[in-house]
Amino acid sequence: MEKQHKTITIYHLLVTTIIISLAIASFALCIMCELNKSKKKELRVDGELCSLPQSRAFGYGIAALMCSSVAQITGTMLFIVCRCSSDFKSLKTSFASILLLLSWASFIIMMILTGTATSMNRRQEVGEGWVDGECYLVKNGVYVGSGTLVLIATSSTLLSCYLMISKSRAMHAQAK
């Protein structure tokens, strides 16, 4: 029984390390997007038509979206595994579920912000632009805000998992 508990603890530690690494990578990629996004000086205007070249922020943004998606899904799976091994009627379980809901809300807002801003950093051809033939630039701070939301989402997920794990450990200690 003790060996199984150590194996589960190592599994939780490994998964948590992966989630944290992916969240930090996503945050760093968001910062790189902010530094490499299309700038006003790159905007070319031909009469009423405009064009923008593709910036590096496009690739970094896609990578940030992928890292944060994998971290969020992995964290949710860890939460589900921990919840299946604990009591469903606990106050800690309800609070952990609310934290997970906050995590998903932050994640969805981050995905919308990063996805939209990333698509604006794709090549905008003359007369096509991003929407309605007009060129758009990402406002300062959008990617930093997205990176912050990644950290909020990951922290909420991991805290909800921690609450579930501590509840599970308390139940195992009482059983002994």
Rank of each mutant, 00 (worst) to 15 (best):
M1A: 03
M1Y: 04
M1R: 04
E2Y: 05
E2D: 15
K3G: 00
Q4D: 09
K6G: 00
T7Y: 04
T7H: 03
T7E: 09
T7P: 00
I10W: 01
Y11L: 03
L13F: 01
L13I: 04
L14T: 15
T16A: 03
I19E: 04
I20L: 15
S21C: 14
S21N: 07
L22W: 13
I24K: 05
A28L: 14
A28T: 12
L29D: 13
I31W: 12
I31C: 09
I31L: 13
M32P: 00
C33Q: 09
E34Q: 15
E34Y: 14
L35G: 05
L35A: 14
N36S: 15
K40P: 06
L43M: 09
R44Y: 00
V45G: 06
V45A: 05
G47H: 02
E48Y: 05
E48G: 15
L49T: 04
S51R: 07
S51T: 15
L52K: 15
P53Y: 07
S55H: 07
R56V: 03
A57L: 13
F58H: 15
G61V: 15
A63T: 12
C67D: 12
C67K: 10
C67T: 11
S69P: 02
V70A: 09
I73E: 05
T74N: 04
G75V: 10
L78C: 01
I80H: 08
I80E: 14
I80S: 12
V81T: 02
V81A: 02
C82V: 00
C84K: 14
C84M: 10
S85V: 03
S86K: 01
S86D: 02
D87E: 07
D87W: 01
K89A: 11
L91E: 03
T93Q: 11
S94Y: 07
S94L: 11
F95L: 14
F95Y: 07
I98H: 01
L99Q: 08
L100C: 12
L100K: 04
S103R: 11
A105K: 04
S106W: 14
M111H: 10
M111C: 13
M111R: 12
L113G: 13
T114F: 09
G115F: 08
G115I: 15
A117V: 08
A117W: 08
S119V: 06
S119G: 04
N121W: 03
N121Y: 04
Q124T: 11
E128Q: 12
G129D: 15
G129C: 11
W130A: 13
V131A: 11
D132C: 00
D132P: 00
G133H: 11
G133K: 08
C135G: 05
Y136H: 14
V138L: 08
Y143C: 09
G145K: 02
S146A: 15
G147K: 09
L149K: 12
V150I: 12
L151H: 09
A153L: 10
S155E: 02
L158C: 08
L159K: 05
Y162L: 13
L163P: 00
M164D: 00
K167N: 07
S168D: 01
A170P: 01
M171P: 00
M171Y: 03
M171D: 08
H172Q: 13
A173I: 04
A175D: 08
K176H: 08
K176M: 10
